[in-house]
């Protein structure tokens, strides 16, 4: 069974939502999903760019009232 874990990084500039995601992905299982909540608009670009470079999957990226919801699946 895979789970979707919420990473609430709203209001964070440092170490930043992406770093939170990277740290959590390292200790996760392949197939696990993470939904990052971020109010930092840079994350909407950063996270998909890293996900592609690192070979994971971007499941969804959407904005809702100034908060980005970015869902990522660990692929390797």
């Amino acid at each position: 069974m895979t789970e979707k874990t919420l990473i609430d990084a709203r209001g964070s500039f440092c170490p930043g939502p992406l770093m939170e995601l990277i740290a959590q992905l390292k200790s996760a299982e392949v197939g696990d999903e993470f939904e990052v909540l971020s109010s930092d608009k840079g994350s909407a670009n950063d996270i998909p760019e890293w996900v592609e470079k690192a070979g994971h999957e971007l499941v969804e990226s959407r904005e809702d009232k100034g908060v980005w919801h970015i869902t990522v699946k660990k692929k390797r």
Partner: peptide, 10 residues
């Protein structure tokens, strides 16, 4: 550096 720029704070 781990992210797409040289420091976490833009």
């Amino acid at each position: 550096y781990p992210i797409g720029r040289i420091h976490s704070l833009e």
